[in-house]
Design a protein around this nucleic acid. Structure first.
Lengths: 113, 113
DNA sequence: ACGCAGTTTAGCTAATGTGCTAATAAGAAT
DNA sequence: ATTCTTATTAGCACATTAGCTAAACTGCGT
């Protein structure tokens, strides 16, 4: 639960970071997510398991499908806390202000389907 | 350089996260750092190499010793950007305000020498 | 009951990560 | 020159990870 390492280990993989970004403002089914990547559905399923056991996503089952949604607070608490512990607050703040300008989503383009 | 993954992979290990925290407000020699942990000096040296190639620390050689220092901006840019891309800004801000209250340094106590 | 869509689980392989000890390199001191 | 200190590199062992394909599970429609 308070296992920060699970969170940071989950974030170490670019596919998983991209999944979290994709879940930013809507929930998606496992299939929805898999269709956005080139790797196989079972591999995505494993990534989702890792994210879930890190507490970074929740699942909601509806009929056949399983919808995954982001647990923002988990990310904010673990990572935000670490970041603000290590970095002086000004730096964190400055980054926050630049947020909208930078489209950091282009980074993992090669992962896409 | 713009290799976010190197940064996140570096953060996946609790020893490395602790090293970054230890470097928060002072530079430390490799030996200084190693003496704070129970694992061997060569292992710490490897961790420092990982942190350095992720761009998270700089090294300064002085006589026998090598002093490592934190590169705050690297951490703030990569992690802060990701965090504020995925999370709504309020959450990040709230965390920032709570910063001083929570002593997140107790987490990795078992790593210590 | 059967089959289909959506997902996960099993089992495998190749690559990576982390720790150790022993050996090496480089500088300072005697 | 030899030795001490500081730190890294080499080589090994073990565990974990990420990918794949094939098989199994679940809920719905026919």
């Amino acid at each position: 639960m308070a296992d920060d390492t699970g969170v940071f280990r989950a974030l170490a993989d670019p596919t998983r970071r991209q999944i979290l970004q994709d879940l930013r403002d809507r929930e998606l089914s496992a299939g929805d997510i898999a269709s956005r990547f080139t790797i196989s559905a079972p591999s995505i399923s494993r990534h989702l398991t890792v994210l879930k056991s890190a507490g970074l996503v929740n699942e909601r089952r509806e009929a056949n499908r399983i919808f995954y949604s982001l647990v923002e607070e988990r990310l904010a608490v673990c990572v935000g806390q670490f970041l603000s512990t290590v970095c002086p607050e000004q730096v964190v703040l400055r980054q926050r202000r630049k947020r909208r300008a930078t489209s950091q989503s282009a980074e993992n383009e090669e992962l896409r389907a």
